[in-house]
Amino acid sequence: MNATDECIEVCNSLLRGELSAIETYTQAIAKFDGDPERRALEAIRDDHERSADRLRDHLADMGATAATDSGAWGSFAKAVEGSAKVLGESPALAALEQGEEHGIDEYENALRNADVMEEIKTVIRGDLLPALSEHIATLGRLRNK
Rank of each mutant, 00 (worst) to 15 (best):
L87N: 02
L87V: 09
A79C: 11
I104M: 06
Q27F: 05
L142M: 07
S90Y: 12
S70K: 06
H135M: 03
M62D: 13
D61A: 15
A131Q: 05
A67F: 13
L96I: 08
D61H: 14
E100W: 02
Q98H: 11
E81K: 07
R125T: 12
Y107V: 00
V10Q: 03
E108N: 05
A95H: 01
L14Y: 09
D5S: 12
W73D: 14
A114I: 06
L15S: 03
H48P: 01
G34H: 06
D33L: 13
R38V: 10
K85E: 14
S13M: 10
R16F: 05
M62E: 13
S90L: 15
D47V: 04
A94H: 08
S83P: 06
L128V: 00
A67S: 11
H48E: 12
T26Q: 06
E81H: 10
M117G: 14
G17A: 02
D35A: 10
S51N: 13
D127T: 14
I104D: 02
Y25G: 03
D61K: 15
T65F: 11
A110Y: 01
W73C: 11
L15T: 02
P36R: 02
A21T: 02
L111A: 01
I22W: 00
S75R: 15
I136G: 04
E101I: 13
G17M: 00
R141P: 12
G17F: 00
N109E: 12
S133T: 12
N113Y: 07
R38G: 12
A40K: 14
T122P: 05
E119M: 09
D69R: 04
S13L: 05
G71R: 04
A66C: 07
P36Q: 03
S13V: 05
G63R: 01
E134F: 07
E118T: 06
A30R: 07
A84I: 10
A94R: 08
H48K: 01
A28I: 01
E37G: 09
L129D: 09
V86R: 06
R141K: 11
L14G: 07
S90D: 13
V123D: 15
D46F: 03
R38T: 04
T138K: 12
I44F: 03
I120Y: 09
A3T: 07
A77D: 07
N144V: 14
L132C: 08
E18C: 03
S51I: 07
A66W: 10
Y25N: 00
S51C: 10
A67Q: 04
I22Y: 01
E118D: 11
G71L: 00
I8Y: 02
S13W: 04
A95G: 09
R54H: 12
E108S: 10
E108H: 06
R56D: 05
A64E: 01
N12T: 03
Y25K: 01
L142F: 09
A40P: 04
D69T: 14
S90W: 13
L142E: 08
I29V: 11
A64I: 01
G103N: 11
R45S: 06
T122Y: 14
K31L: 15
A92N: 14
E118A: 08
D53C: 13
A66R: 08
V123M: 14
D57F: 11
G82A: 09
Q98N: 15
A131N: 04
L59G: 05
Q98C: 13
T24C: 03
A72W: 12
D57M: 11
Y107D: 00
D115F: 06
A21F: 01
S83N: 15
S51D: 09
A43T: 05
R16S: 03
